[in-house]
Amino acid sequence: MPEILVGMVIMIALGWIIIRVRNKKLMIQTGGWILISLALLYTLFVLEFVLAFLKEGAMQAALVMGGIFGFLAILVWVLIYRFVLTGKSKHHD
């Protein structure tokens, strides 16, 4: 069940990105899509990492690892939002 939740979080994030790109008619270069893919993979890794520690019953490990790697994930997503997902639109009308 927790694995399904992790999958859902990633799919929701991906869906949100696609909808945002379409609605805002954003022009995203290939490099931008590669960055987004890597960020999604990294987020999946962090969530699975935390989940593995929770399953083991190692609460402190989940908090510490989640804190360190999760902070990096948030930082990456803030940068992607700022520099990739608020880029130029295809039409300026």
């Binding site: 520690f53 190692a58 609460m59 402190q60 490990a61 510490v64 690892m65």
Partner: peptide, 8 residues
């Protein structure tokens, strides 16, 4: 360091 910080 991570091992200790994680409470193991």
């Amino acid at each position: 360091e991570f091992d200790q910080a994680s409470g193991y």
